[in-house]
Write a protein that binds this DNA or RNA. Structure first.
Lengths: 168, 168
DNA sequence: ATAACTGCAAAACATTTGCATACAG
DNA sequence: CTGTATGCAAATGTTTTGCAGTTAT
C-alpha cells in the first residue's frame, strides 16, 4: 500500500564509479560553460560531497575536508557549494532557523523531510500528492515552480525519543 | 472547482475589536499561567502584531514600534515574538535562507506559501491534500506532527515579473 | 599573460546573552 | 520587597566580502 512512501536509502546510496564519473563530467561541463575554472579545491570539494550520502552543512564539509588533509578555506567551501547548487548537483535545505544543510542531488529521488524536534533526526518521505499540489499551484498562479520545500516538524510518539539528547 | 484554493485575505484581515479582545485575553492568560509578567512592552508588541495582517520580521516590528513612539529594544521584540509563538498566537516562517518572518495566527487559515524568486512577493494557498500527507506521515512514522512548512519557489510566467527589482 | 580563484581576516547580518537597572506582582 | 523583565552593548554563529597573492587556461 505505501511502499513508495519510504525512501530506501540503500537504493540511492553510494554511486558507482561510473556514475560518479558522469556527475563529475557534468560539473566540469558546467564550469566550462560558465567560463569558470576547474581548480583542485573545487574538484576536492566535489569529490567529498559525492562521497557522502547524508545531509551536511558548510562547516561540516569544511572540517571533513581538513580531516582528509585537503586544505581549503571556508570561503571556498561556500563558494563551491553554491556552484554545485547552481548546476543542480546539490540541493540546499533550510530546516527551521538552523544553518543551511546540503545534500547531493544526482539520482536524487524527490523527497521531503520529517524532523524530530527532540533529537533533530531527519526522516525522508515521498508522497505523490505533493506533485499534484505543485501542478495545481503552477496552473492557478501561472508560476513556474523551480523547487519546493516541505518539512514536517514533530515528536516521535514512542514514550521517550531514543535519541533525545540528555539535558535539563 | 478550486475556490478553496485561494486565500481570501479580506476574510481574515483585520480582526474586530471584540476578537482582538479575545486574543489579548489569551496572551495574558498565557503569561499568567507561565508566571510571566504583563509588561507595557509585551502589551505594546502584542497590539502592534495584531494590528497588522502581513508577514513581518523582527526588525521590521522593532522599527514599526519605534515609529509609533513605543520605545522597546530589539531584545524585547525577539523575546516577545518568541512568547507569542509559544502560545500559538504567532507563527514563524523561514523562507529560504532569509531572516525569520512572523505572521499572526488567530483565525489563521492553515495555508502554505508560494514565493516569487524575482520580486520576493508572497502568495498564499491552501490545498486539502497537504492534510492527507500529514495524516499519512503521522501514521507511518508514528510521529505527532506539530507543524509543517510547505514553500514553493518559482517565477511568475508573465513575460516580466511586474515587481522585479531593477538591478544589473 | 591575465582574468579568475584562493585564503585570510574583517565585515555583515540576524539573533542571543550578560548584566546593571527598572518595575510588576 | 523580590524576582523578572528590560535596555544596552557585547557576543555569537553563519555567511559574505575585500584584497593581496596564486593559479588555471
Amino acid at each position: 500500500m505505501v511502499d513508495y512512501f519510504f525512501i530506501d536509502k540503500s537504493e540511492m546510496a553510494r554511486l558507482s564509479t561510473d556514475q560518479i564519473e558522469i556527475v563529475r563530467g557534468r560539473f566540469n561541463d558546467y564550469l566550462r560553460q560558465q567560463n569558470l575554472r576547474q581548480t583542485t579545491e573545487r574538484s576536492a570539494i566535489f569529490e567529498s560531497v559525492y562521497e557522502t550520502d547524508d545531509h551536511f552543512d558548510a562547516d561540516e564539509m569544511y572540517l571533513r575536508l581538513r580531516e582528509k588533509g585537503v586544505g581549503v578555506s571556508r570561503a571556498t567551501v561556500y563558494n563551491t557549494l553554491e556552484l554545485l547548487v547552481g548546476c543542480n548537483l546539490v540541493v540546499r535545505h533550510q530546516f527551521g532557523n538552523k544553518q543551511a544543510k546540503f545534500e547531493r542531488s544526482f539520482r536524487y529521488w524527490q523527497h521531503d523531510h520529517l524532523i524530530c524536534m527532540d533529537c533533530n533526526k531527519l526522516f525522508e518521505f515521498c508522497d505523490p500528492r505533493i506533485q499534484s499540489i505543485r501542478d495545481m499551484v503552477t496552473e492557478i498562479f501561472e508560476f513556474e515552480i523551480s523547487h519546493h520545500s516541505l518539512n514536517m516538524y514533530g515528536h516521535c510518539k514512542k514514550a521517550v525519543c531514543p535519541d533525545r539528547p540528555i539535558s535539563n
